[in-house]
């Protein structure tokens, strides 16, 4: 009961919707401790991804489709989130090879490689108040769920829930990476927009998996 290309396209569709619905809110978060464009950046990127996906061949592999997400984000987003998320999808896609159906272990490998890609590019550690504070708990929760033999959609749901908690955990932190790092104590009390958007994206992945499985 693995997840195939239909999951990837459903994930992209859900992401497009959730990013567009949360565009203003994400930029609002970014306005408080950054430069107020995070929602626009992602919206621009995923709108471009959607356009690319419109002509996608039905027999594209998940890895190839996710690579297309990556290159599109890298070429359209700019900002910090463009290369970071782009690298996440790129490294994640490479971990999938040519597989057409993804099982729980492959999803963990995807998430781990994606997170490692963000760290490779951005050098952030957990607690730096970045999207890594969503990604690393998500990877850990996904591995635990897979080790317990959970289904692919349950693995993604575990990752999503951990990412949501991780995003919330950024609020009390001082930032050490990104624009917010220039604010010192003034960043305390604000949620990191990139962690928040990563939790939305991972929730979309779980939603799409549940819809695809059923």
């Amino acid at each position: 009961m693995g997840l195939g290309i239909s999951w990837v396209t459903a994930w992209v569709d859900d992401t497009v919707t959730v990013v567009s619905d949360n565009r203003v809110r994400l930029s609002e978060l970014d306005r408080e401790i950054g430069d107020g464009d995070h929602g626009e950046n992602l919206d621009r990127g995923f709108t471009a991804v959607k356009a690319k996906f419109d002509g996608l061949a039905a027999d594209t592999s998940p890895g190839a489709a996710l690579k297309l997400v990556a290159t599109t984000l890298i070429s359209t987003v700019g900002g910090a989130s463009g290369p970071l998320l782009g690298t996440a999808y790129l490294k994640g896609a490479q971990a999938l090879g040519d597989a057409t159906e993804l099982d729980s272990e492959q999803l963990v490998a995807f998430l781990t490689a994606a997170r490692d890609g963000v760290v490779m590019r951005g050098k952030a550690e957990i607690g730096d108040k970045t999207m890594i504070d969503a990604w690393t708990p998500a990877v850990d929760a996904a591995s635990a769920a897979a080790a317990e033999g959970k289904s692919p959609s349950a693995v993604l749901r575990a990752a999503a829930d951990a990412a949501i908690a991780g995003a919330a955990s950024t609020e009390p932190l001082v930032a050490h990476k990104g624009r917010a790092s220039y604010l010192g104590e003034r960043a305390v009390g604000h949620r990191d927009p990139g962690a928040e958007s990563s939790s939305l994206i991972l929730t979309a992945a779980a939603d799409a998996a549940e819809a695809t499985e059923s």
Binding site: D37, E40, N41, I74, G78, G79, G82, P83
Partner: peptide, 9 residues
């Protein structure tokens, strides 16, 4: 780049 956003890679 876009307004106040780094150019893309």
């Amino acid at each position: 780049g876009n307004l106040f956003a780094s150019p893309s890679t």
